[in-house]
Every structure is written in C-alpha cells, then in structure tokens.
Simulated assay, not measured.
Amino acid sequence: MAEESVAKDSVTKVVAAHAPVVGRPFALVHERPGQQTAAGERAADNTTTARTGAPEARQLPDDPDFRDYVDDYFAMTDALPFPSVVLDPGWGVAHANPAYDALFGGIGQHPTAMPGHNFLRFVLFHPDAASVLAEHETAWCLPMLAQFAEAYADDESAPGLRDIRQEIADDPIMDAAFRLGLPHWVRAVGDAAVHHDGAVRHVRHPDPERGRTSCRLVSESPRTLREFGFRRLTLVLRETGPAATRRGRAHLSVVPTR
C-alpha cells in the first residue's frame, strides 16, 4: 500500500536501477528544524488564519476590475457543495470554499504546508495529508510532482517553485524520486501524469456518512483567471459507484527504466 514503508536496502536497489523511488510516503517528509520559507512565514504570522491555514486573498493582483470579478467568482465557488479551491501559479490558495475547509478540517497545524495555504506543499510535505488523500503517494504525490516538474522546467527562477525544489532536494528519497523515478513514471503514464482534469481519485472524508469515497478532479481556468495564472480545482465527491482498483507499489515497480 502507498502508506506503508519499505526497507532502506530495497530503496537503494531501486535508485540504482533508476526506477521510481517510493521508499516512504512523501507526506512523511518533514521540514528541517528552523527551516522557514517566505510562504511559511506568511502562514505563521497570519493571526487570522483559519484551521486549514487559509490566508486572506491578499496575493491577488491589485487590479480593481479583476478583484470585482473574483469576488463574484469566489461567491459562486462558495455555493458549490463540493470542495473547491482557487490556486495561484505556485499552488497557493487564493480562495477555498466551505466544503474544502470541511474536507481538511481535521488536519493538524504545520508552519508551511497547510491545505488552505498551498495545496502542493500540503500534498508533498504535510504529515497528515495521507489521512485525507487516499493512495496518497501514487495517486496524489506523483501526479503533483509531475505538475511541479513541468512548471519548474518552465521557470526555475520563480521564488515559490525554487523554494519547493530546495525542500525536495533536502530529502534524499524525495529528491531521488523527483530526479530519477519521476521521468520514467511520466513516460509510462503519459499525458495523464501531468494533466489531471477528469481524473478519479479517492479521499477519506471526515464526515462519517461519507467516509472513504471517490472524487473526480475538475480543473478549470476561465479566461479572466487565466490571464493572471489562476485556476480552480474542484473535487466532485461521488455518492455512489464501484470502488476504483487500488494501485500500490507494484504499479510503480513495473515502470520501464529505459
């Protein structure tokens, strides 16, 4: 299973073979003591932050017409019954609706990786991420790493992306997964590895009436949002339907190395 650990010697063999490295869940990678990025400082200093870590939407462009538009767009997002979040170019949360807050309401505090502050950081670095995101490593971490890799390749100088890349580099297992395993996984999975619109994944909802359930990811970016690099991600929770086949480490072990 994705949440289980494997022995270090087996990880070493996988790295040597240039196969995907999944030695432990990426969510268990903790930041080094004292490490604090600018994003983390904003999160820690924001005394109005909710439990999910959602800051005020102060990072939005200072454009009156755009702000008027997003105020209405946020109101529309809040009316959705499904978890929905508006993300900036670095996966920072510009706005999250009440259903999103409810999904991640039980997440413990973290200085830089709260789900209401930065979704990518939450998936990669928060120790509680696997408690909500089922098949955390294969269904969430690897796809998010693939998206990050594409964005980082386009602009390595972007401060937020550069900080995340450094945190990945600080952990040998995650760094090996990023540099060696991820390219092979992306080639094996294809375009779906990076473009997630329509993907069906699983979550563990804190509402006992929902429990473990599947959701379809719907990614959209209206023209007005797209001009500023913003997009919305919605997790359309599915009430019924056959359980998807669980993919564990065996799925990754067959990724070709050439």
Rank of each mutant, 00 (worst) to 15 (best):
T77N: 05
M76D: 02
A19N: 07
A27G: 08
T52F: 08
E31A: 14
K8F: 11
A79Q: 02
H95S: 11
A79D: 06
V21F: 06
P83E: 08
A17E: 10
D68L: 08
V14D: 10
M1E: 00
T12K: 08
A2Q: 05
S5L: 14
E56P: 07
Y69S: 05
T12N: 11
V21C: 09
A50L: 14
L28P: 04
L87N: 12
M1A: 13
D45T: 12
A50C: 10
L87H: 12
V14W: 10
H18V: 01
G92E: 07
N46G: 00
G53C: 08
A96D: 15
T49W: 04
R24L: 02
S84Q: 02
V70N: 04
G34R: 07
P98M: 06
G90Y: 10
P33M: 01
D65C: 01
R42G: 06
R67M: 02
P33L: 04
L80S: 11
A75W: 03
V15K: 13
V15M: 15
Y69V: 03
G23C: 14
K8L: 15
D45K: 12
F82G: 00
Q36H: 11
P81C: 06
G40W: 00
T77C: 08
T37W: 06
M76N: 09
H18S: 10
L28N: 09
T48D: 10
L28S: 13
A39E: 11
R67F: 03
K13C: 00
D62F: 01
P64A: 07
S5D: 15
A39Y: 07
A16Y: 06
Y73Q: 07
L60E: 09
S10F: 14
R58S: 15
W91E: 04
D9H: 12
E41M: 00
T77Q: 05
E31Y: 04
L80D: 02
K8W: 14
P33C: 06
A27L: 00
Y69M: 05
V22I: 13
P20G: 08
R58F: 13
A54H: 12
H30A: 15
A19K: 12
Q36W: 03
P83D: 07
V93G: 05
A50V: 08
V29F: 01
V29R: 15
F74G: 02
E3Q: 08
A17I: 02
T48E: 14
V70L: 06
E56F: 11
K8R: 14
T49Q: 09
K13P: 00
Y100N: 06
L80F: 01
E56G: 15
T48R: 11
G23I: 06
Y73C: 00
A16L: 10
D9M: 05
P33K: 02
V93A: 08
P89K: 13
P33Y: 04
V86D: 14
A75I: 03
T77S: 09
G53Y: 05
L60D: 12
A54C: 12
F66M: 03
Q59C: 13
D72I: 03
L87T: 04
A75P: 03
A16C: 02
P61S: 03
A16H: 10
A39K: 09
V70Y: 05
D72Q: 15
D72R: 10
Q35W: 09
M1V: 09
R51N: 03
G53W: 11
A17P: 04
D71L: 09
D68H: 08
A27Q: 03
P89W: 08
P64N: 06
